[in-house]
Nucleic acid binder design. Sequence first.
DNA 1: ATAATTCCCGATTGATACAGTCAAGAATTC
DNA 2: GAATTCTTGACTGTATCAATCGGGAATTAT
Lengths: 142, 142
Amino acid sequence: MQISRKADYALRAVTILATLPPDKTMQAQELGELGKIPIKFLEQILLVLKRASILLSKRGVGGGYKLGKEARLISVADVIEAVDGDLVRFIDVSDYPAYPGGNGVRQFLMDAESVINSKLEDTSVEDLVRNDSGDALLGYGI
Amino acid sequence: MQISRKADYALRAVTILATLPPDKTMQAQELGELGKIPIKFLEQILLVLKRASILLSKRGVGGGYKLGKEARLISVADVIEAVDGDLVRFIDVSDYPAYPGGNGVRQFLMDAESVINSKLEDTSVEDLVRNDSGDALLGYGI
DNA sequence: ATAATTCCCGATTGATACAGTCAAGAATTC
DNA sequence: GAATTCTTGACTGTATCAATCGGGAATTAT
């Protein structure tokens, strides 16, 4: 089981934008280069993130993207959910068959799902940037 | 992100077998019916579980499957790993690119991965059966 | 022996989702 | 009005998933 590339790329883009000084924007092109993300694929992702109000965009010369709200208000779950449509859903709880031991399995899968989703929901993009070991901002001469 | 059907089916089969009295076997046919698992698909899965020493099999009349070791010694991770080849690996740690904030993202993804994997590793099939709310054994008249 | 049973195994298939590309349109700035 | 940048939809190749199919090998019963 893996995280989708889309979700990884989205996290990269949002995190990079979170390291920008407020009110600065960054263009898709540069985001793609910094984050090692195929540009046309990234454009799709940025668009989705914008529709989810996670990002704001500005067109034309000097345009680009920036966070749509404070980094502490954007959870990792928000980002993944925006691009992938759902978080971790191990099983369809409403439609799990009955069998010997099945209640135990279902309960466990729900628990495990909850453990990981809580972690995704409780971690903000600000947390990610804060826990960066330090060379994140070097590129901006800060 | 979902658990694979294969992993779900494998958990069902192993859990059902864990509710059997020791030394009893159950045939693939009946396992499939109880667990609502397509029989030919189940056969593949049982074979893999056997190769992983999670199950033992016996051929011919009166044959079938049973656990290859005590239920408390089989972790959920063992079962998933046997059929899916890996557990949760959010990212390839060794090959994650550098970008502003990237260390924070990588660290978070590794943490999240570790949280879920620990849960899978620390839960045994015996735990699953023990937490079953009770009608697991009804089918056997116990 | 031989037939019945049950597990064992490889090949194949159809559908779906993933990851990414392509071509062009709309808004903004200079 | 020309250049820039985001916006959008359509399209494509690849891989993985979720099975299915057909038969082969071991074991037991008669």
